[in-house]
Design a protein around this nucleic acid. Structure first.
Lengths: 206, 206
DNA sequence: CCTATCTTTGACCAATTGGTTAAACCATAT
DNA sequence: ATATGGTTTAACCAATTGGTCAAAGATAGG
């Protein structure tokens, strides 16, 4: 693979990422991707055989980028509270730079659950569950958190981080009423979410 | 408007709702809606001039159905804790019957923020904020919740309820690992989410 | 310089899609 | 019965879309 070829392929991939994130698989047009990359439409098919394959490549990379941000949760050096604080700070900062990502992923997961589950399974999200159980099982027991509640907590943590971006249109409408803006809201959320979850943690269920 | 006409229009509307929820605006096909309704494609245009208008009608009704479920939050007879418990029970039950709704709404809001914000503004979500402040402002103050944190809490509550359905593909992959199933997870969530939020509430921020 | 291989392009295609239209259908009132 | 009005249909259309193909350009080896 020559250097120029790599560059072209990369330009196409980046352009496709941008367009797919903006419009979704169904809304994206091959012509728009070609324009964005500054090349002929035929070249798209030369490098990636079809729209489907191009989309798959983009989706896989984008999903991997998203879930790789869960790494703080795996660090055995960190306490539970530290993990939660680090996670929200890093994950929300990441979404700040990629605000279209949540809505894109959620929509495409729903559009084709089977294909997407396969990709997600390959990213091995399940291992986060295993490691949390392994590193903090004792702590969970003391807090009265039964094994079935661990997924509840994990999903809640994800929701707290992802939802404001996925539902940005609603959030902004609400913030308008309160005289706030989205940027400040997100900045505040990094610490709010951590505190919220930690407080919910450190009390026996009613 | 005759009775038969009403029936036809309703059949079209219901079919359109089903197809749009399943496929989204871009993915939906007028032919599929016609088939689903058991009528000719031309009739779609006879009753609703264009795909856009048909979609707008569906979106508005569907969004209204979603947000009307927030009504427990407005009841002055309920305490804050009761509101939270009632809300999760009712809202999650509603989503159980309409599992495609969250992903559909989130995606379409993102696809056309302007048009959607207008519709959402008409549904007046902001009034929930006002009423909460008005009915529980004193309580908030005692709990150390500043005005800017109220939207944080509202979004968090929405996220806890909506996200599991919007991200169902991810949730199911995670539950697989833990040996659980989605239905049970959702049933458990109605009470878990309420307890989670209430506990996060009733402690001073660290 | 010439050939062989890879890259890039423009012209083209078949299929799909939202939408139109004129005619057929059907109920009802006169 | 038949004229009138709204309702429904089949046939059709223009535009768009993903994809193909043969030829032109570029690049490197001999």
């Amino acid at each position: 693979m020559t250097e120029i070829e790599k560059l072209t392929e990369e330009r196409i991939f980046d352009a496709a990422t941008e367009v797919f994130l903006e419009r979704g698989m169904d809304g994206a047009r091959m012509q728009e991707i070609a324009d964005q990359a500054g090349i002929n439409k035929s070249l798209l098919h030369y490098y990636f055989r079809s729209k489907d394959r191009l989309f798959d490549a983009v989706f896989e990379k984008v999903a991997a980028g998203m879930f790789s941000r869960f790494s703080p949760l795996l660090d055995p050096e960190l306490s539970l509270e530290e993990k939660i604080s680090f996670f929200f700070r890093e994950h929300i900062s990441f979404l700040e730079k990629n605000p279209r990502l949540p809505s894109f992923l959620l929509n495409e997961i729903n559009r084709n659950p089977k294909r997407m589950k396969e990709i997600i399974r390959r990213l091995d999200i399940g291992k986060i569950y295993d490691i949390l159980e392994q590193q903090h099982g004792e702590e969970f027991k003391q807090l009265g958190i039964t094994p079935s509640l661990v997924p509840q907590i994990m999903i809640s943590v994800g929701a707290m981080s992802v939802f404001p971006f996925a539902a940005r249109g609603i959030v902004e409408t609400l913030l308008e009423k309160a005289g706030l803006n989205f940027k400040d809201f997100i900045e505040e959320r990094k610490t709010f979410a951590a505190g919220f979850v930690i407080r919910a943690f450190h009390n026996k269920p009613t």
